[in-house]
Amino acid sequence: MERRILVINPNRDRACTAGIAAAVAPFARPGHARFDTIALEEGPPAIASWRDWFSVALPLCAAVQAEAADAYVIACVSDPGIDAVREVTDRPVLGPFRAAVLAAMARADRFGVIAFVEASKARQRRVLLSLGVEGRMAGTEALNLPMTALTDPEAPRAALVRAGRRLVEAGSGAVVLGCAGMAGHQTFLEKELGVPVIEPCAAAAAQALLAIA
Results as ranks from 00 to 15, higher is better:
residue 73 V to K: 05
residue 117 V to D: 06
residue 14 R to Q: 14
residue 183 A to V: 02
residue 54 F to K: 13
residue 152 D to W: 03
residue 144 N to F: 04
residue 209 L to C: 03
residue 140 T to V: 13
residue 150 L to K: 07
residue 85 V to M: 01
residue 2 E to A: 13
residue 64 V to K: 01
residue 146 P to S: 09
residue 191 K to H: 14
residue 183 A to Y: 03
residue 208 A to T: 06
residue 15 A to K: 12
residue 20 I to Q: 05
residue 185 H to K: 06
residue 43 G to D: 07
residue 111 F to N: 01
residue 187 T to H: 13
residue 9 N to Y: 11
residue 48 A to Y: 03
residue 92 P to G: 07
residue 89 T to D: 10
residue 177 L to Y: 09
residue 172 S to N: 00
residue 91 R to W: 05
residue 209 L to E: 06
residue 207 Q to A: 12
residue 11 N to Q: 10
residue 129 L to D: 15
residue 132 G to R: 02
residue 12 R to E: 09
residue 45 P to Y: 09
residue 51 R to D: 15
residue 44 P to Y: 04
residue 212 I to D: 02
residue 122 A to R: 13
residue 110 R to M: 08
residue 75 A to C: 05
residue 116 F to D: 01
residue 126 R to E: 15
residue 148 T to S: 15
residue 77 V to A: 12
residue 132 G to Y: 12
residue 4 R to W: 00
residue 38 I to E: 07
residue 137 M to R: 14
residue 47 I to F: 04
residue 126 R to K: 15
residue 43 G to H: 03
residue 51 R to A: 15
residue 41 E to P: 01
residue 58 L to H: 14
residue 101 V to W: 03
residue 8 I to Y: 05
residue 106 A to I: 00
residue 188 F to G: 05
residue 11 N to S: 13
residue 142 A to Y: 06
residue 184 G to D: 03
residue 7 V to Q: 12
residue 129 L to I: 13
residue 60 L to M: 14
residue 175 V to R: 06
residue 36 D to C: 08
residue 107 R to L: 13
residue 158 A to Y: 08
residue 59 P to Y: 12
residue 75 A to D: 00
residue 88 V to S: 11
residue 132 G to T: 09
residue 102 L to T: 08
residue 95 G to W: 10
residue 131 L to T: 10
residue 126 R to V: 10
residue 16 C to R: 08
residue 106 A to F: 00
residue 73 V to M: 01
residue 135 G to T: 07
residue 136 R to W: 04
residue 211 A to D: 01
residue 143 L to M: 02
residue 21 A to N: 01
residue 124 Q to T: 07
residue 94 L to R: 05
residue 64 V to A: 07
residue 165 R to D: 04
residue 103 A to P: 01
residue 121 K to I: 15
residue 92 P to I: 04
residue 210 L to Q: 11
residue 204 A to P: 04
residue 196 P to Y: 10
residue 117 V to K: 02
residue 203 A to E: 05
residue 78 S to M: 02
residue 212 I to K: 03
residue 188 F to S: 08
residue 211 A to Y: 08
residue 81 G to P: 04
residue 163 A to V: 07
residue 178 G to L: 02
residue 31 G to D: 09
residue 188 F to H: 12
residue 18 A to V: 08
residue 159 A to L: 06
residue 174 A to H: 01
residue 121 K to A: 11
residue 59 P to R: 08
residue 76 C to K: 02
residue 180 A to L: 03
residue 12 R to C: 15
residue 158 A to K: 14
